[in-house]
């Protein structure tokens, strides 16, 4: 009689794991802040007790080189760059027409991003925007997912100022990084817009006073009725232009704080869950954070792509 298997493992083994997880869950409830607040101290060893996290927004300095402080988020950004570069280098070092497993995987990822760009922005523009969009996506995604590894937020070092700080911290949770990405995205979008549409035509979207001036002229010529109509429409044009201009800059803020808020919030959520119940119970939240990281990366890359597509589309004059 063949052995009964559950999820590919032998039955006793499977139930063993379930029991272990349950036990860990109970311990985690007892040792976490939840259990301790209900039951009081029941004499668990101190290494099981997780201290209350004290999250703080600015990144901490690990060491400084020539007065330039290297923060823990800077370190993890470099780590991300090294890992991304390393993986892609390993995959593309010996490219073959019939690909290896790693090559297939990364080719699929890049191919997906490429078709994403080409679908939204068209063949030619999609290829133009692709490197920036793909890099934004990959960087944000890698930062988010790497920060879920054990070691992030748990290795403590003492820095030059004598403070005890975390060695690694998710790079997305340092506001400088989202801001840097948002600024890059903004600058590139405006650059593409100016280059494709032409400086004057592009800026006309924001500073559209043509009809207003025309209205003023007509009023001075004595055609008050037509002039006033022109003035009203012109004022609306100017106002809309102003709002358009404002929205371009607001994008920087929304880009920055969307990513920063989501990532920092996620990190604090995980820390709090670990504080409340150190084992097992926090696992679903790691799954959630995987999803959030992916979505944030997709939003950052996708919005940049959409803004760039809008910027290079010539602003057509409405027919009057």
């Amino acid at each position: 009689m063949p052995e009964r298997r559950i999820l590919g493992v032998r039955r006793p083994f499977f139930f063993g794991i379930i029991v272990l997880l349950l036990a860990l869950g109970v311990i985690s409830l007892l040792s976490g802040a939840l259990g301790r607040s209900f039951l009081g101290d029941i004499g668990l060893p101190s290494w099981l007790i997780v201290e209350s996290p004290q999250p703080q927004l600015p990144p901490e300095e690990i060491f400084s080189v020539l007065g330039f402080s290297i923060t823990n988020t800077m370190l993890t950004a470099w780590l991300t760059i090294a890992i991304l570069g390393g993986i892609f280098y390993a995959a593309t070092r010996k490219m073959k027409l019939v690909p290896s497993r790693l090559q297939t995987m990364l080719e699929a990822a890049i191919g997906w991003l490429l078709s994403f760009c080409e679908d939204i922005a068209g063949k030619e523009n999609g290829r133009r925007f692709f490197p920036l969009v793909a890099t934004l996506f990959l960087f944000v995604l890698a930062n988010a997912w790497l920060s879920l590894f054990p070691g992030y937020g748990s290795i403590l070092v003492t820095n030059a100022h004598g403070e005890t700080v975390h060695l690694l911290r998710g790079a997305n949770t340092d506001i400088n990084l989202p801001l840097a990405l948002a600024l890059t995205s903004f600058v590139m979008v405006e650059y593409w817009g100016l280059k494709s549409v032409g400086v004057f035509r592009y800026l006309k979207k924001f500073f559209n006073a043509g009809r207003f001036i025309g209205g003023v002229r007509q009023v001075f010529r004595g055609k008050v009725k037509e002039g006033l109509g022109g003035l009203v429409n012109g004022a609306i044009d100017v106002f809309i232009g102003f709002i358009e201009l404002l929205s371009e800059f607001v994008r920087i803020l929304s880009f920055t704080f969307r990513l920063f808020g989501n990532m920092t919030g996620g990190e604090i959520l995980l820390l709090m869950m670990l504080f409340l119940a150190p084992f097992v119970l926090a696992i679903p939240f790691y799954g959630l954070e995987l999803l959030v990281g992916f979505i944030q990366a997709l939003i950052f890359g996708g919005l940049t792509l959409v803004f760039a597509t809008i910027a290079v589309t010539p602003h057509t004059e409405e027919a009057h």
Binding site: F68, S69, A77, D174, A180, L181
Partner: peptide
Amino acid sequence: PSLLAQIVNFA
């Protein structure tokens, strides 16, 4: 400085 460094990192 951090902002600039991150922009450079990204580049």
